[in-house]
Design a protein around this nucleic acid. Structure first.
Lengths: 247, 247
DNA sequence: TCAACACATTAATCCTACCAATGCTCGATA
DNA sequence: TATCGAGCATTGGTAGGATTAATGTGTTGA
């Protein structure tokens, strides 16, 4: 076991005790005893709040605290949300997400099972139905599930954490407010094409389609339509997942 | 301004007040007043501890609390450190870092100035001197500075946060314990080659060299040398930054 | 057998007190 | 006038106690 210092006695205590997901932590009163942490309940609660904010434990009122399965998402989401509130651009995080998806694309696709592909097809069907039948609902849950579905076999908590956090930010920032019907149709046409390319093993072409389809978002959201003629192409080259490669 | 909910009254208060980096927060006593947050000092301190753990504020004892420049690194480092302590593999994070560096490689190189390249050269010189003159010191600071130097012009706090956190984890986990002299020489030979290729604008070849040089680490660290003959190639294909592309 | 009640546990919140370090004010001294 | 230092207010750090309300458990009794 690594002897890791998390910068707080309580957090170090948690990991050193080797609790497993689902295990119950001692009550706050017990932790204050000198046989455990020997600190005041206030201090325990301060650091417990950090563990809760980062999604390491689940504190259920009057019932105790339980250790959760590790998940990178809460830390990424919380810090990135704060960043956006401080003026950081959503496009910066979207750029990271696009690059990560493009970089892992082929190996993730190679791991997909037939059942995974069926699940992605179900997303497309559900989304298409929502778009076809008025009143039109924006198929945001399907959009999220479709993209995360590509990477769910990767078995890398850090990669999946970033991708999941992207969709949380996506909803919080309210990107969907800028969407129109045409955009949604084109996006889901791309999704169908991407899935088809994955099915036949053309992962490179599928990735190229993914990269193209990410550019739709910024063209739609950009409130300056004149940039579409002049500098939009260059902007997309810089900001988005333009996987640099020789063709 | 986005109306973002960080899941805590205090954190929401900070961002809504629109403090700038360097600004001083009201004292904890003031914040408890009903004109500000109207909560007890204990609760303020609980949530202040979250802001401190994520590197949003600097709490200087008896002197007050100041807002810091936003930085993604603390959140990533803290959560990833916890993950490693919980049994997550360092290789998972290294894989993310390798993919991110490979994905941003070309556009990052394109932004480098002559002065940036000089700084990278200085790292190589300093590292070479450390390796040449006994007693041999491991040039870890140079290694970190060299790699971060490639990406420092990206102007993307999230990308830089992940790359910086990687080096923090690298030191905390103690990867360097497994290094021998031959490994270090080969790594720095690669660095010199990478810088030369960047200088002449051959970003693709430089990236290829980067990807190759990341594989050195795992071959050295792996305590099972027999895998080098049989499954090492396949393992590298899966675990590391094998940017999938047609040659 | 099962429902109702009593009791222990526990997180949530608030308050007070004390400590120690810091920074500022103001007055004494050269 | 300039400078040093004592004293004081501010502020974060820590501890402990009190209360509340929700939850779970065990006991009692029809």
């Amino acid at each position: 076991m690594l002897d890791i210092n998390l910068g707080s006695d309580f957090l170090n205590y948690i990991v050193r005790q080797g609790y497993q997901p689902g295990d119950r932590l001692p009550s706050i009163q017990e932790l204050t005893a000198d046989t455990h942490l020997d600190m005041s309940a206030n201090k325990v609660r301060e650091q417990l709040e950090v563990a809760r904010a980062l999604g390491w434990v689940e504190v259920r009122s009057k019932r105790g605290t339980r250790v959760k399965h590790y998940n990178f998402t809460p830390a990424v989401r919380l810090s990135a949300l704060y960043a956006l509130a401080c003026g950081e651009r959503f496009e910066s995080f979207a750029s990271l997400r696009n690059h990560v998806e493009a970089a892992y694309w082929n190996e993730a696709c190679a791991l997909l099972t037939a059942s995974d592909l069926s699940g992605m097809q179900a997303c497309i069907d559900s989304a298409t139905q929502k778009l076809d039948s008025p009143p039109i609902h924006i198929p945001n849950p399907e959009h999220r599930r479709f993209h995360l579905g590509v990477f769910k076999r990767l078995d890398n908590a850090f990669v999946l954490g970033i991708l999941e956090a992207y969709w949380d930010l996506y909803e919080e920032v309210g990107v969907n407010r800028y969407m129109d019907y045409d955009y949604l149709r084109r996006v889901w046409d791309y999704h169908a094409r991407i899935l088809q390319l994955i099915r036949v093993g053309e992962f490179d072409f599928a990735r190229q389609a993914f990269i193209e389809h990410t550019r739709l978002l910024w063209h739609e959201r950009d409130p300056a339509p004149w940039r579409l003629e002049s500098g939009a192409q260059a902007a997309a080259q810089n900001d988005l997942a333009t996987q640099p490669r020789k063709e």
